[in-house]
């Protein structure tokens, strides 16, 4: 049925069309800056800085410029490795902690589970900037400044409440009888998790993991405060391409595109699962 428009009974064709047009306009307005950034990244600096041009000689030179490493400066390779390590490790830790927590809140609700759930999300209410000073002092005292570890710890903490909330709603979708059947059939906690709960909640877990990856990959504030020099991540590397000597719009665009590619790619690959996963949680 894809590609066919479905009019509801009595609906006028032009109303339907107008809504469709509006959706497209909003979509394009959202997409335009991204499109412009990608376009700029293939231009020469001169083309990018003069009047907006749609037609130009595309070049990969800006990408070569930004990926060239200079001594003393954070290279793209280093930043990418740091980001990858921080994002993957923190996401794995988040899932490892959130899955048992979500099980305890969804399937075997612990005493006062509502308070626990609220407590989790309440940590998200605080403005990040209010926490930075104590976090910075703690990190310094523990010798964690300018290390990947500090970001792994922080991103785990930042994403954990969200992951617990999401996974809880996915776990609640699993029919109770299935878990009870497994219990009667002889499965212990491990058996129930590995045979029933995790396979059934896989789309939800994928969606949760992906959101954690995206948030961790894009995080800038803590990274710039705690790791300005070594162990820095891709968002920090993007800002190193801002020059004080004139506008290098094309180069900056190329850097931004490189920063975007991994998350866009991950989102695209996981799109089907993620939409199913997000929709699955949305029902409750």
């Amino acid at each position: 049925m894809r590609g066919r428009t479905h009019l509801a009974v009595g609906e006028r064709r032009w109303v339907h069309g107008a809504f469709g047009l509006m959706a497209w306009i909003v979509g394009l307005v959202y997409f335009f800056p991204v499109f412009w950034m990608v376009l700029n990244s293939f231009k020469s600096e001169q083309d990018a800085n003069t009047s907006p041009k749609l037609f130009f000689h595309p070049t990969l030179d800006r990408y070569k410029d930004v990926t060239k490493s200079a001594t003393g400066l954070l290279s793209f390779g280093e930043a990418f490795t740091n980001s990858a390590v921080v994002v993957i490790v923190s996401t794995i830790i988040v899932l490892a902690l959130a899955i048992p927590a979500a099980y305890a809140l969804a399937i075997r609700p612990v005493h006062k589970w509502r308070d626990v759930l609220f407590f989790f999300i309440s940590t998200k209410f605080l403005p990040v900037v209010a926490a930075i000073l104590p976090v910075w002092i703690l990190a310094r005292n523990l010798g964690l400044l300018n290390t990947r570890n500090v970001l792994i710890i922080l991103y785990t903490g930042l994403n954990l409440p969200l992951a617990v909330w999401m996974l809880r709603s996915f776990f609640r979708e699993i029919p109770r009888e299935l878990i009870e059947a497994a219990e009667i059939d002889g499965a212990g906690l491990k058996g129930q998790l590995t045979s029933i709960i995790l396979p059934m909640a896989a789309p939800g877990i994928a969606a949760t993991a992906l959101l954690c990856v995206i948030f961790a990959w894009n995080e800038f504030f803590y990274a710039v405060q705690l790791n300005p020099v070594k162990g820095s991540t891709v968002p920090i590397w993007v800002t190193t391409n801002i020059s004080t000597r004139g506008d290098f719009l094309a180069k900056l665009s190329a850097a931004s595109v490189l920063a975007c590619i991994p998350v866009v790619l991950a989102g695209w690959i996981a799109q089907k699962r993620m939409i199913r996963g997000l929709a699955m949680g949305a029902i409750k």
């Binding site: 009870e180 059947a181 009667i184 059939d185 499965a187």
Partner: peptide
């Protein structure tokens, strides 16, 4: 515990494990 009672239960909605085949479902216990 339920699993130590030596019982088997048939549920109203059958509670079959959706990701397992018929043979795996029956062999699960």
């Amino acid at each position: 515990r339920p699993r130590d009672r030596d019982i088997a239960m048939v549920f109203q909605n059958y509670a079959l494990y959706p990701q397992l085949s018929v043979a795996q479902n029956m062999g699960f216990p």
